[in-house]
């Protein structure tokens, strides 16, 4: 049951559009920054297959410029 967090960068001027797009995906929790063009995304899926499907959905969002996984929990001990 992978739980991952990402920093998400929208294309210029498309932050609101990106928030709306991500909010419609059930596996996603979105936390927009108030004063920067950046969102935090936390994803939760049940297995690797769902994870792959989610990845495809995310890649299809046009307002999304860059998705950067946060390595905070990706420590040597957990890998």
């Amino acid at each position: 049951m992978p739980i991952k967090s990402y920093l998400v960068y929208p294309h210029e001027g498309r932050k609101s559009e990106l928030i709306r797009a991500l909010s419609q995906i059930i596996e996603c929790d979105v936390m927009p920054a108030q004063n920067e063009e950046l969102l935090i995304l936390v994803t939760e899926t049940d297995n690797k297959d769902e994870e792959e499907l989610l990845k495809e959905k995310l890649e299809a969002i046009e307002s999304l410029k860059l998705l950067s996984m946060v390595s905070g929990f990706n420590t040597p001990q957990n890998s």
């Binding site: 967090s5 920093l7 920054a33 946060v70």
Partner: peptide, 19 residues
């Protein structure tokens, strides 16, 4: 924890960023 990690990372890159 995942969200907190991301906020911390964001804070390192964008000083003063507010959530």
């Amino acid at each position: 924890m995942a969200a907190l990690s991301a906020m911390t990372a964001a804070a390192s890159m964008f000083p003063g960023i507010l959530f």
